[in-house]
Amino acid sequence: MLYFIKKSKKILAILLTIPLLTIYHTQAQSVTANDNNILSLSMECPNNPQCIYSGQDPFLLDILITNNSDQNIEIPLEAIRAYLSESYLKDIQTGEPVGPVTPPGLPLTDLLKKLTLLPAHTSHVTRAEFSKKGIKKAFKKAHSNRIAFYKSIVTSIHYQGSKEPIGSYENGKFERKSFVLEAEKVITKK
């Protein structure tokens, strides 16, 4: 009889634990259509809303990663800066690069673990600086007086405090969701 009671307690404990784990994973990892809009990428020229280049050195451009959700999230910001992004100046007419291309680098797993808090409805701003020589060279290669700065980021997102990134379970295996953010800003030569 004692053996039966011990086995019953173990079975009861397992039966109670399974629904709790399912609820935890469902809340922490669920991916919905709205998740695609959690983060956005945009650019603006500080103190120069039309992004007009008139010889200033350096030419400045602010890159904004914005949390559009109602929840605090965490992103691997150092990894994004180190290797999860691509950027270049391109000709508006042809779409071809007219400046150096910064391709994504090789993954550094340690940087993926360093997460930076991005509170709900806030932006993280990174400033890009273009030297007078570099931007003049880009305009010289372009077919018009307009070029665009293109930026692309691929990243994972964690809800604040979650050990796992946003993702979903497929065939019993967890798959992290990669968020692809793209933006470009047109720069006009005066």
Rank of each mutant, 00 (worst) to 15 (best):
N68Q: 14
I75C: 04
L108W: 07
I52M: 02
P100V: 14
L112D: 14
A33N: 12
T26P: 05
R127F: 01
K113H: 02
N72C: 07
D62H: 10
L20I: 15
N36I: 01
K113L: 09
N48W: 04
K113F: 01
A79T: 08
G55C: 09
Y53V: 02
E129K: 12
L60G: 00
C51F: 05
Y83G: 06
T26C: 07
S87Y: 07
L60N: 10
I135D: 05
P49G: 09
E96M: 13
I63A: 06
L112K: 12
I135T: 02
F130N: 05
N72F: 09
G99P: 07
P58S: 08
I23F: 12
V31I: 15
T116S: 14
V125Y: 06
I38D: 01
K113W: 00
P100K: 08
G55W: 08
L111N: 08
T122R: 14
K114Y: 09
P103L: 02
A33H: 11
D91P: 07
T32S: 15
D70W: 01
A33Y: 04
S85E: 00
L112W: 08
K132T: 07
F130M: 12
F59N: 01
I18S: 09
D70P: 00
L108T: 14
C45N: 04
V31K: 10
